[in-house]
Every structure is written in C-alpha cells, then in structure tokens.
Design a protein around this nucleic acid. Structure first.
Lengths: 208, 208, 208, 208
DNA sequence: AATGAATGAGCGTTCATTCAT
DNA sequence: GATGAATGAACGCTCATTCAT
C-alpha cells in the first residue's frame, strides 16, 4: 500500500481516537490498531505522538479555514459575506465532528506546542472576521472607522458565539437544527449589533 | 495543621495544576508538592484523582455561578441586569483564571463524569440568560413572545461569546482591557441584535 | 478501659481479619477498626504488624495444644487416649475456625518468622501423637519397638489427615457432621493400620 | 526469543517467587527479574498478576494430576493402584516442590478465584481416591457397599495424610526419605484401616 | 514496506509506621 | 490512656518508543 494512502488512514484514525479520548488518554496502540497498521509503521511515517497530533491539528485546521474561505464570495455585500462564511463554518464542523473536537476541545488544552498551533488557526478565523467587519464599516461609509482593537474584540465575540453554537448543535440529541438555521440564529443575534456599532450607534451604561 | 485548611490548599493546588497541565497530564505528585503536602495525605482527604477533579469543578462552578448571580440586581431593567451579570462573569473569570481554565478548557474534555458536571454549570448560566431574554421580551411588551428554543439558541451564542471574550482578555499579554470594557464590547455586540429580535425585527438572507 | 481487655480485643480482631484476608492483605487500619481502637493504640500495645501476627499465632497455638492435651486422659488405654485427643482437636478447630485458619492456612505461608512458630506448634502436636504411638506399642508388648522415625512419619500422616478432615468438616455447607463423627471417621481410618503396624504386621508391595 | 519460550520462563519464575513469598508478597518486579525479562513484557504476555497466578495454578495442577493418573495402572488390583498413585504423587511433589507449595500453601488462601481453581484440583484427587476405595470395596466382594459420604471422608483423610507427608518429606534437611519409603509409610498407615472398613470391621469407642 | 519483541520511565494508589498533643 | 495528622517506600500497571529482522 502506497505511503500517501497509509498516512491518510493514520491521520484519520488519529483524529478519531484523539477526539474520543483526548491527547493524553489516546494511546498509540489504539491509533495504530484503528489505522490497521503496526505501531512501528506509524512511528516510521509520523515520528512521534506529538508530531502526529500536530499533523492532525494542521490538517483539520486547514480544512476548516478552507471551508470558511470558500463560503465567502468576495464580490457580495458585507452581510452576505458574513452569512456565507458562517454557513461554511457550521457546515464543516457538522460534517467533521471529530476534527472539530480535536481543534476546539483537545488541542487548546495541551500545552504550548499545540495550543500555539490552534491559536494560530483561531487567529486566522478572527482575522477573516475582523477584516470583514472593518471592510464593511468602510464600505458602508460610516462616520468614523472602527478602531482595530474593538473590531478584533467583536470578532472574538462572534467566533466564540459560533463555536458555542456549533457545540450546541452537534450535542443535540433531539432534531438537530439544520446548519442553515444555526447560521441564521447567529446572524440574527449579531447583525443588528454590528450594524449599529459600525454606524457609531453604541449601547452604553447610564453613567452614574 | 487543621484538616479544613489543608483541604483548601489542596484544592487550590489542584486547580492550578489541572489548569496548567490538563486532567490526564496532571500528576498527583505535582499537586501534592504544590499543595505542600505529601501524596498519601491528598489521598486521605480527597480519595482519588477523579474525586479531586470533581471537587475542583464543583468549587469553581459554584463560585462562578455565585459571582454572576450576585451581579444581577433583580430590580433593575433588562439591559442593566444583563450588563451586571456580564460584569460579574468577566470580573470573576479574570480574577480566577485557573478556575476558569479548569471549567472551560479541561473539564469538558474528560469523559462522562466531569463533562456532565460542567455541562450542568453551563446549562445554569444559559438558563439565567435565557430567562433574562424571555423576561425582557415580555417586559418590553414585544409583539410575539420569543419561542423558547430560539431564546435558548441566542443564550448559547451569548454565553459562547462571553466565554470567548474571557479567554481573549485573559490571554492578552499587552495591556489587558478592564473587565468593564470587555463587558461593554459584548453588550455593544449583543444588545442591538437582541433588542431587534425581541421586537420582531429579524435579519434574513435575501432568498434567491 | 484496662489494657488487658483492650489487648484481648485487638488480638480477637486481628485473628478475625488475618483469617479473612491473609497476612499481607490484612491492613492495620481494618484491624484497628474491628478492634474499636485507634491505630496508634494498636502500635502502642503490640508494636508492629509482625509482632501482632506472632501474638495471634502464639495465642491460638497454645489454645489448640491445650484443647488437645486436655482431651487426653493419661490413665486410659491407648485407643481411648488417641480418640479423646482427636475429639479435642476437632472440637476446638470447629469452635474457633478463625484461629484455625490463621494457624493452618495463613501462618505457614508467610516466611521464616511465622512459619517457624507454627512449625513448632505442629511439631508439638506430632510429638504428642508420636509418643502416644510409641507408648502404645510398648504397652501392647509388641514384638519390636517401632523405630522413632517411622512413628514420626505415621504421626505426621495422622495429623495431616486430621487437618484435612477439619478443613473438610468446616467447609461443608450441607449438614456438617458432628465433631464426634469426624473423629470416628479418622479413628476408623487410622486405627487398624496403626494396630497392625504396632504389632509388626505390615503392608508391603509385592517385590518383583 | 520466541514468545512461547519466554512465556514458560515467566511461569517458571512466577511459580518460584509465589512459592517463596506468597501471592501478595510476591512482586511483579521480582518475578520479571527472575524470569530475566522486563516487567512490561510480563504484562504483555500474561496480562495481570491475577492471571499470572491463575496460569501457574493451572499448569502445576495439571502436571500433578497427570503424574498421579499416570502412576495408576487400571489393570492392577486395588492396593497396587493406590500404591502406584501415591508413588506418583510423592515423586511429583518431591520433584516440583515450588509447584506443590503454590498449590498446597499459597493458592488455597487467596480469595475466591484461586481457591476455587485449586479446590477443583483437590476434588479431582479426592475423587480418584474415593473411586478407588469404592471400587475396591466392590472388588473385594465386601458385605455392604460403603456409603459414598463415608468413602469421601476417608479419601479426604488419605489425601490430607499424603499432603502432610509430602510437606514432611520436602521439609527434611537431614537425609530425605526416598519417595518409595514415604509411600510405603502411608500405605502401612492406611491400608489395614481401609481394608477393615471395607469389610465391615469398624473401630468404635466403648459406649459408656 | 512492514513487524514481533522488548523496555525505561512514570503514574495512581496503598500501607505500615510515627509524632505532637 | 488515646488520637488526628502526616509520610517514605513500594506495588500493580501502562505507554511512548526502539531494535533486529
């Protein structure tokens, strides 16, 4: 069996096992068994548990980023761009729950090397959104440009909300809402707030 | 040294170590050392690694819930109530980053017994928010009551956004924004959207 | 509570726990708990697990020896003396199964210090029987005195048979035979053989 | 080194160590060291301390049963059959003192799983002897058939006597008697008693 | 390309034992 | 006379990793 195929099987197996057990509790024995290969072969191709986990993270992160970017049609207006990006996100996480679990649940909790890699992914998502927000603000010809830090905070909030909804949707045992509905909920939640903000209308606590 | 004091030291140490390493990678040796006690004493008081982790989760979850509930002033209008709850949340997570890490990052990824406990905590937060949303809708005399499932989805989004922002704030190495500012960002992000929704004004994709 | 009483309670507890768990698996914690005393007190009175076990062995061994010796009426004829000794043995082991278990099952299997003590007990039993056999041979005016080594071997066989029957009787869950019947079985089994031997009639394989 | 060979070495080592120390006091470290292998290899092949002990018991029990059965020549008359069985028994226990110690001293005192296995072995021995006794009674055309329970009691006594003599012989540090002599002692001890019993001549205490 | 055989290091847990009071 | 508090040492077991083939 050619190396490329074997390697893909191994990554598939690893993602499945890491998602089920977590990084530490996953054993190379189980991964090798699920992959249908012997343990030394796994080491020959992927060198170590750390590198294997890294490879999983990279593969899944790239796939997710790609899914989001593909959703965004650069020519569309701002709200459509956001809407499409969200649909890409929810569709991909629903279709690859193990990969999403590895990225969202496992990788962030296991020390420097992995947390950094997954933080980079998340930053990329956040950047996509931040640019979207800033660009839209400009596009709308709003009075004052949003400061970058505020846009970044908003983007974090949006990504967090999206992550949370992804978990909520995947965890449902009753009829899971379609990806379309999840995205709509989030747009409903976020859009008006963003729209107001981008046009300088803010909520503020009554200062005493 | 009296037992009660020692037990608290142990829980403190455990929260710190679990936050730093994760459940599996944390060793009872390190926890005992950080607690300044011997390993058998930890076992005498807390029985097992599982029970110790459980005790951490329970303690931190109760403290967080309390902080949120204490922030909410039942007499205030809806937006103030949400605002105050968020401030309680961000203030507490910023003051107890290890506890928050255990709850948010570690406990959810380690099998039934813990995931259930932390899921209960999260549900309690979500419920608080859901009730706030539903109550506000009524209070505002909005046209049609929000369906419970939609309110729940919105609450999940809001809680997720809050969690995400908590992580963002805690992770900053440059000047971390004050808790007040983080809360304001989220209110800005969320309030207008909620307000619109509660009054029947929704965003919808232009159907092709 | 006076020391003598406490000490007896501790030995009772220890015999019970050692019988149930074996020497190694018995924990000083459980013994102290069954004895209704705190662990340091057990150490104050009995110094160590080894000494405690030793004390159990000594107490139970002495009680058993006494029970056997008391059964034997020095004035009676040979078969009555053996008969009464056996009845004493079976009656005592049936009445004190834990003590018997400690002596027969546990003490012999745990290294030099204890094995020696219990070997001494067993030797004492064997000696009683050996003397009985030799004396009887003389008493019967049999032709040639039994060589001591042969008498000793016979005594070992008889004691082993008795031990085996004690275990058999105690282990029965159906109607356990009365001590009297067990003793009679053994006498039936042994007497004729001994009688013949003591009178010079032997079984021998047909030499080819 | 091929697995089968290693496995045998491990069992040999385990029998030796279990015989010397007892089940609880034996450490897997010592067993591995005596076997000349590393501890993980022992676990890889034999799974756990319990299973290892079980495997020892089974192997030694089968070997002992085989030795006894091989001694018995089905065509011979009753006393020869018993005589040969005893010789097989004594020869085997003398040649494999560790195995015998594990079966006789250690396995019986360590909780359900092992006690049952060794009880099964002992019952098999007792059954062989019981059948021998009953068969002989018939063969001798004795007046009334021995009740099975009585025969079983006698068999227990005989097996106990044999076990006791095996221990006696093995424990000797002076010139150990040949297996032949030990067997002869026991035959001398037992045969006349059995012979009488089987022909209805019993010993009975003079009822007062 | 692929694997059976093998291990050093570490972890969760237990226990006999001792002080300070 | 009696105990709550505390620990050093060891044990059963697992796992990532490497050779020799």
């Amino acid at each position: 069996m050619p190396r490329a195929v074997r390697e893909r099987q191994m990554l598939d197996a690893a993602v499945e096992v890491f998602a089920r057990r977590g990084y530490r509790a996953a054993s190379m024995d189980e991964i090798a068994e699920v992959a249908g290969a012997s343990k030394p072969l796994v080491y020959l191709y992927l060198n170590s548990k750390e590198e294997l986990f890294s490879a999983c993270i990279r593969r899944e992160a790239e796939a997710l980023i790609l899914a989001v970017r593909e959703g965004v049609d650069p020519g569309a207006p701002a709200d459509r761009r956001l809407w499409n990006g969200l649909r890409g996100f929810f569709a991909h996480t629903a279709a690859h729950p193990d990969g999403w679990a590895v990225l969202h649940c496992q990788a962030r909790t296991h020390g420097e090397p992995f947390a950094l890699e997954v933080a980079a992914l998340r930053q990329e998502l956040v950047d996509v959104v931040t640019q979207l927000i800033v660009a839209t603000a400009a596009e709308n010809g709003c009075d004052a440009p949003l400061p970058w830090q505020e846009a970044s905070g908003l983007a974090h909030a949006l990504v967090g909300a999206a992550e949370s909804l992804a978990g909520w949707t995947n965890g449902r045992t009753d009829v899971a809402p379609a990806e379309r509905d999840t995205a709509e909920t989030l747009m409903n939640f976020a859009w008006a707030g963003l729209d107001n903000l981008m046009n300088g209308r803010r909520w503020a606590p009554a200062r005493p």
